[in-house]
Design a protein around this nucleic acid. Structure first.
Lengths: 205, 205, 205, 205
DNA sequence: GATGAATGAGAGTTCATTCAT
DNA sequence: TATGAATGAACTCTCATTCAT
């Protein structure tokens, strides 16, 4: 019964896992079908092609991150509030959905242009008004007010995003550098705390 | 002229570009051959299989980053010196060889375990003694001496690496957020400065 | 008409012909596909690989010979009856399916060990109880009773099998020795008669 | 030193082993070269092509069997003497050079026509006079004299050859049927004795 | 004679996609 | 909707053969 209506959802879920593990070209429709417990041909029935399916998955991933940021920005927060909330938004989403980060990263590496146009679509489609222009203004305002020490909005955000994104991808990398496994206990909280601390001390005045 | 004995080197170079652009499964031997200006069969003559070629490339990438860090650590530097040098090492290598970062990231995402064992091999093969144990001690020492505010070596390094690694990958991402292209002019220097500034203020006392 | 559900059977038939004519490595999937009037990829769809297909064919060949011998042995026949029936079983099967002999011979030559394990499987899979142990006892009994002059079961059977197997393969060989073609007319009957005559006179008392 | 002059002999030896194990199409020039401890290109230098090499090997194999039979036939022996000598000739050669049998059998199975013309060449080239026509006459004479019970020269020789050829190939086959290994001890002598006994009792009067 | 590198034709295999039912 | 079978293009890999030295 619930097998019926949510076939496309099962496909999307399986596809996210597959794409984030193997990338677009490495992904196998066969595996997605098996994981989604559905006939392979049905994926084409629902999503037309591998590329289309990939696009839908990517859109879904971005859609899940974007609105929260828009909402935050539209609140006109102080730099301090913004930092805390932004880090928690990113970290929360990514630590709960590591496949999201993986897909975004792979897209970033292999098809950066793809993401650009995809985001543009998201903007125009949803008519999300505050827009990123606002974010630039916001950061400019903080800097002029003396709230932050990094005046370049681009660098400001890149610092924030780098730390948030790689926090969960970088774990295995660190385990290599230190040559022993890192305890999972409270990893998320510890990481958020460290990042927040770094950003506050490093960018707030 | 340079067509002579360096066929395998040309293959490796072409392969790095190909793998970092398309991933393991997306890469095409045909394209690598054409780029290396060589008969396709020769790739197999030299490297046996696509997978083997990939492994050799990955090893080469890692080998090129590792020694510089080992050297730095073995110098027993202060925290301040370490931060500056480490950021410049990472940034320098990666901004000059963006394909490196891409491959490392892809591996990190798709085969973290693969990297682990690969690094282990590098350690033992090269008998590089200072090792990462030393790094942990170093960070501990700085913390006890009051040089740094982040006492967890793991968080300390993750902050450093995240900012260095994503600096160059994140550019397209930022261009999306801000919806207009970022000037390339002096990008590397600006980026290093911002990261260094953030790390100094945020982690040094 | 017969194009329907029997694609795998058509493949097996074509494969037997191909393998028995060209051997494992000389066989061409393309040719098998064309002969079976099917898309080449379907062979892999049904049989995974060339090697797997070969194995299936070999098994089928052996399965077709084995049960009749088991049945004969379990009848507890006299030596005379056994000789006559065995020769006819072998000759009948082989003259009607010369490809069988070819495949068995090729396997015998190139992978004798392969056959051994294959037969072992056939035994255990089918739980065929009378088994060859019984055959050894049977031959022993005939010898003690004075029915036959060859007391070594191994030599006894090797004589029988050699004559039956090579009867149809050896034709071209003979044509060489005698340097002119042998008339096909009643070849099978003549051959069986000669072999039976030889075995009766030579091994019965 | 002895490496010099006998390169072609080493190739032929390696080729016989390779061809008898893998057949013509399964044989690998690479493997032959390695086995002969020589550069692959040299095989082509000496033998032009794989097919040519194969032909040379086959010719060599046949040349080694043929003269002894011719000699025996030209002696105008009695049936009894002929049987004994022929069986010993075949068995001796084949038990000492099992690769010979393998090659002949494979040729017989896969390219019977090939052998035919090859033999024709051998006849004309070497001007081996007694020829097989003589053999037919010989058998006919024995039959008319009442020496033998099988009057058809073709059947007569097929019986003889089948038993001789398969004696050594059939061993693994028998081990399967009896499901336990056959002791190697005196295998050749025992086998010859059994075959001779069978042929004498079965075909001599 | 001898060698390592090179070549090109083709072989086995995979996979997204479509078809028939 | 749903399925198993089918397809064709493309891909990795192999191998006899040749080339340059």
């Amino acid at each position: 019964m619930e097998q019926k209506q949510d076939a496309d959802q099962r496909i999307l879920k399986a596809a996210l896992k597959e794409f984030s593990t193997y990338g677009l070209s490495g992904a196998r429709m066969e595996r997605i079908a098996k994981e989604a417990n559905i006939n392979k041909a049905m994926i084409f029935y629902y999503f037309s092609s591998k590329e289309k399916l990939y696009e839908v998955v990517i859109r879904k991933v971005f859609s899940s991150v974007y609105p929260k940021m828009v909402e935050l920005i539209s609140m006109n927060p102080t730099a301090e509030v913004f930092l805390e909330r932004a880090v928690k938004i990113y970290s929360g989403i990514f630590s709960r959905n590591p496949d999201f980060v993986k897909m975004i990263m792979i897209e970033l590496i292999q098809n950066p242009g793809n993401i650009t146009s995809l985001m543009r679509d998201l903007f125009t489609e949803n008519g999300l008004t505050p827009g990123p222009g606002h974010l630039k203004d916001l950061i400019g305002k903080w800097y002029r007010k003396g709230e932050i020490s990094e005046g370049d909005p681009f660098q400001f955000m890149l610092n924030l995003v780098s730390l948030s994104l790689l926090s969960f991808l970088g774990k295995p990398f660190m385990e290599i550098i230190f040559q022993n496994p890192v305890s999972d206990e409270n990893f998320e909280e510890k990481r958020i705390e460290s990042v927040l601390n770094l950003l506050r001390r490093g960018m707030l005045t």
